[in-house]
């Protein structure tokens, strides 16, 4: 049997969830909450891993990864990609908001000019 089975399942599951997150429209509040929970988790895991490095090792062995440092690396990749996805999404959201703002500005400007001097033809 594949000794790394568990970590493989775990990592693949995480990336499938990321892919789904990319395509599904998320609601603002939930998205923000998930972001914050993830951040707190990262800190908690970091502190525990620093205080008890041997814990990391045994956790790694549990899921079939040889060393704790390897597990740390995998974890970092996951956090990094998750962060990229979340940032991209926020960026798109902001782009949409800027668009609405700029369009509203353009229209109000236009209606002001119109009520002014422009001759109609």
């Amino acid at each position: 049997m594949d000794s790394q089975l568990w970590v493989k399942i775990l990592l693949i599951a995480v990336f499938v969830i990321f892919a789904v997150m990319l395509v599904l429209p998320g609601r603002g509040a939930r998205h923000l909450a998930v972001r914050r929970i993830a951040l707190v988790l990262v800190f908690a895991v970091a502190i525990v891993a620093i205080a008890y490095p041997e814990l990391l090792n045994s956790l790694a062995n549990l899921v079939g990864v040889g060393r704790g440092t390897d597990l740390l690396l995998y974890g970092m990749v996951v956090v990094l990609i998750g962060n990229i996805i979340s940032t991209t999404r926020r960026h798109r959201q902001m782009e949409r908001e800027v668009t609405q703002l700029a369009r509203a500005l353009a229209l109000s400007e236009a209606s002001r000019n119109e009520s002014g001097s422009r001759p109609r033809g």
Binding site: V98, L107, E109
Partner: peptide, 20 residues
């Protein structure tokens, strides 16, 4: 008649502004 976007927003936004 010219309506001006203050920044470049893309053609889709321009169409919607024009329709509005």
């Amino acid at each position: 008649v010219v309506v001006q976007h203050p920044i470049n927003l893309g053609q889709g936004a321009a169409l919607r502004t024009g329709l509005d």
